[in-house]
Design a protein around this nucleic acid. Structure first.
Lengths: 257, 257
DNA sequence: TTGCTCAATTGATCGAAATCAATGAGGTTC
DNA sequence: GAACCTCATTGATTTCGATCAATTGAGCAA
């Protein structure tokens, strides 16, 4: 794989930026115990109820957290992107399966040593706590989106979340002259699992949004968003995952173009 | 109000049981700074984006956390019951409004002093963390329920969550000879906000469940659950909020009857 | 008791999504 | 290149839920 493993250098606000606030020795200790692990797309990382013996931080790629229902459905309860922490520490009682949605790189830290370090470093403890709080926020955002009766509106919210979530992650969100192009790193089926519907409805909703002039479907997975305001209005939530950030992004196109 | 304020005594697994694991002095310190505050049903405790200067622990009653959308809708993103912690500490960046769904008593702790105590007591810190993790779990459970296409199934999950959430809270869940009676402390409209639908559909779904023989509607808000298994099968999630606990409850009816 | 108010329910209609089925497009293997 | 294979898309039909409208029922005040 020709992927540069020293992605840490560009820690604007993703990657290992969770830890930039930490003191030198803590970062040293983390660096000493970290190990880069690769997962190809589709591979399961944890099954529900399975213990894992490491704490992971996503270095690149997308992971999906999902539940398995008795009728075979696999609703997705969240996504993990660059910089997100996962593992026993904050998984706690939760029983979710984690799978690689794309090819993924993960920094793995042995659980025991990580927890020891957490006890010694309040900053690290705080960083983990913040990560969990963010995850809680995002999950609530998904709830708001799911409570939308019309699928078109759910998809609108989905696109916005994708943007805000992926801002700064290379090749996933890029500012264009006429809007923001987002690369959705999963199939229609996965999107359906996330939004509580079926792939056909996702397809129809996207094309309805295109019809309305809010987006342009460049390829099935590369969506050009023309009007973030129109999408936001559909969801009804002005500040979904701080859309204002998106507007800043638009204002500073040169940052990504 | 004739409500006994010394509810702390029955800390089986609710009330202030979050803190039973704490050492003596920490509990002393907490007791010294706590203050009991009452909120009548319907009263707003925090608005979205508003800072509150205390950390709260629900002593009795139900709070609902909700978002306000531009179109006037108020989707509910979670409930807080006896023993749940809320406030700036774990609200973090989240902007949710909190309202009393029923008459409520809350133990309030001044924020600054609470945080100081957290820094001095790793156990308290851990307790708060655990509470947040539980909240994350529950929010994901709501996601699973909301991802259900059919309203009947959502309502089925709703009833189960109500049971598991309210077990041990007096007057809300009681074991009967023929099943479990749960008291739903909110209107059909609120239930609709929680499940992403309209009150009429809630009504129809409940009566459909009654028709199917899974439940009996004693009064609009007092539902007797006859067959937890049937409800669980509708949701598809075997272990939703640990339904097994419910079965234990059924087996030990004398505990509550 | 009579009226009043609000919530829950029921009915009827309309629109939207699930479902079933078929076609098309892109990539892979041989 | 040809034969697949997966995924996205489109179409047709049916089911379900939103919506509008009307009714019932339970507190509550006078």
């Amino acid at each position: 794989m020709p992927d540069k493993p020293d992605k840490r250098s560009r820690n604007d606000h993703n990657a290992l930026s969770v830890f930039t606030d930490l003191c030198h020795e803590t970062r040293e200790a983390l660096g000493a115990m970290q190990q880069l692990v690769r997962f190809p797309a589709g591979q399961a990382i944890t099954r529900e109820g399975e213990e894992i013996n490491f704490v992971g931080i996503v270095a690149s790629g997308i992971l999906r957290m999902q539940k398995t229902l008795t009728d075979g459905r696999h609703p997705i309860v969240g996504l993990l992107v660059e910089g997100d922490i996962f593992g026993q520490v904050f998984d706690g009682a939760t029983e979710v399966a984690i799978e690689a949605a794309t090819d993924t790189e993960v920094y793995a830290f042995p659980r025991g040593r990580f927890e020891t370090l957490m006890r010694r470093s309040p900053e690290l403890d705080r960083a983990v706590l913040l990560n969990i709080l963010n995850e809680l926020d995002r999950t609530r955002d998904w709830m708001v989106i799911l409570s939308n009766a019309k699928i078109v509106n759910r998809v609108a919210g989905f696109l916005l979340i994708m943007c805000t979530r992926f801002v700064g992650v290379e090749h996933l969100v890029q500012a264009r002259r006429d809007g923001i192009e987002v690369n959705i790193p999963m199939s229609r089926l996965d999107q359906a699992h996330l939004l509580g519907t079926r792939p056909e409805s996702i397809s129809r909703a996207l094309h309805a949004l295109a019809e309305a002039g809010d987006i342009i479907i460049n390829t099935p997975n590369r969506i050009l968003i023309l009007d973030t305001g129109a999408l936001a209005e559909r969801v009804g939530e002005e500040d979904l995952c701080s859309i204002t950030n998106l507007k800043n992004l638009l204002a500073n196109k040169e940052l990504l173009s």
